[in-house]
Deep mutational scan, measured.
Amino acid sequence: SFNTVDEWLEAIKMGQYKESFANAGFTSFDVVSQMMMEDILRVGVTLAGHQKKILNSIQVMRAQMN
Rank of each mutant, 00 (worst) to 15 (best):
G49T: 14
I12N: 04
T4Y: 06
F2R: 05
R42T: 09
S57L: 08
D6C: 06
M36L: 12
A22P: 01
L41K: 11
Q16A: 09
E19P: 06
Q51C: 07
W8L: 02
K13C: 13
L55W: 15
F26V: 09
V45C: 04
I54A: 01
G15K: 05
N3C: 11
T27I: 11
N3Y: 12
V32E: 01
M37E: 09
S20T: 08
D6K: 05
I58N: 01
K52S: 11
N3E: 13
K53E: 12
Q59F: 12
D39V: 03
V32W: 02
S20E: 08
G44V: 02
K13V: 07
M61W: 06
N23W: 08
T4P: 06
V31W: 06
G49Y: 13
L9K: 00
M14C: 07
F26N: 02
A63S: 13
V60N: 09
F26A: 05
I12S: 03
Q34T: 13
M14N: 01
S20P: 08
K53N: 08
L41R: 12
S1T: 14
T27M: 07
M61D: 03
M36Q: 15
Q34H: 10
Q16Y: 06
E10Q: 07
S57E: 15
Y17A: 01
G44P: 05
M65A: 07
G15A: 11
S33R: 11
I12W: 03
I54D: 00
N66R: 09
E19G: 09
E7P: 02
K52F: 11
K53I: 15
M35T: 01
F2Y: 13
V45S: 01
D30E: 14
V31G: 07
K52E: 14
K18R: 12
M61P: 01
D6A: 11
S28W: 04
Q64R: 08
M37R: 09
R42N: 10
F29G: 02
L9P: 00
D30P: 08
M35K: 02
Q34N: 12
E19F: 09
R42I: 09
I12P: 00
I58Q: 01
N66F: 03
G49F: 12
M37P: 10
Q34M: 12
V45L: 02
L41C: 08
G25C: 05
R42H: 10
A63P: 05
W8A: 00
E38T: 11
M14F: 05
M37L: 13
G44E: 03
L55D: 03
N66I: 15
Q16R: 12
Q16D: 06
V43E: 00
E10I: 10
S1A: 13
M37V: 10
M37G: 05
V43Y: 02
D39L: 03
W8I: 00
D6N: 11
M14L: 09
S57P: 00
T46L: 12
G44H: 03
V60T: 10
I58V: 08
T46Q: 10
E19K: 13
E38Y: 09
V32G: 01
M36Y: 09
L41F: 08
N66L: 06
V60R: 11
D30I: 11
L55C: 08
T46S: 09
L55H: 06
K13M: 14
I58F: 02
N66E: 15
S20M: 14
A24V: 04
F26S: 02
V5A: 02
N56S: 13
V43K: 00
H50K: 02
D30L: 13
A48H: 12
S33G: 06
W8M: 02
L9D: 00
G25H: 05
V32A: 02
F29R: 04
R42W: 07
F2S: 06
M37D: 05
Q64S: 12
L55P: 00
Q34I: 09
D30H: 14
N23T: 12
E7K: 07
K18N: 04
Q34Y: 09
K18D: 02
D30A: 15
F29W: 07
Q34A: 10
Q51I: 13
V5K: 01
E19L: 13
I12T: 04
A24W: 10
W8Y: 02
V60A: 14
G49N: 12
E7V: 05
F29K: 03
I54T: 00
Y17C: 02
T46Y: 10
S28Y: 04
A11R: 09
T4E: 08
Q16F: 07
F26T: 02
E10L: 06
F29E: 02
E38A: 13
V60S: 10
A22D: 05
A48E: 14
A24R: 06
S57Y: 11
A63Q: 14
A24K: 08
Q16W: 05
I54G: 00
S33P: 04
W8N: 00
F2D: 05
V45Q: 00
V5H: 01
E19V: 12
I40M: 09
Q16I: 11
A11P: 00
A48R: 12
M61Q: 04
H50I: 03
L55I: 08
G44Q: 03
L55Y: 15
A48L: 13
K53V: 15
T27W: 07
R62P: 03
G44S: 03
S1F: 14
S20V: 08
V32Y: 02
L55G: 03
Q51T: 06
R62W: 07
V31Q: 11
S20N: 15
S1D: 12
M61K: 03
E10K: 06
L47G: 07
L9Y: 02
D6V: 06
M65D: 06
E19T: 14
V45N: 01
N66K: 09
T27C: 07
Q59W: 10
N3P: 08
I58W: 02
K53T: 15
S1R: 10
G25P: 01
M35N: 00
S20G: 14
Q34D: 07
K13N: 15
A48Q: 10
S33W: 09
L41T: 08
A63F: 08
F26H: 03
F2N: 06
M14S: 02
S28K: 06
A63M: 11
D30K: 15
K52I: 14
M36T: 15
A48M: 10
F2E: 05
A63Y: 08
G25K: 05
A48V: 12
H50Q: 04
F21R: 00
K52V: 13
I54Y: 01
I58M: 03
V43C: 13
A22Y: 13
A11Q: 10
E38G: 10
N23P: 02
A24G: 09
F26M: 07
L47I: 15
V45H: 00
I40K: 00
I54S: 00
M61H: 04
K18Q: 06
W8D: 00
I58R: 01
N66S: 11
E19A: 14
K18G: 05
D6H: 07
I12F: 04
Q51N: 04
F21W: 04
K13R: 11
E7L: 07
M35R: 00
E7I: 06
K53P: 03
V60C: 14
L55T: 04
I40V: 09
N56P: 00
F26D: 01
H50R: 02
I40P: 01
G49H: 15
L47W: 07
D6W: 12
R62L: 12
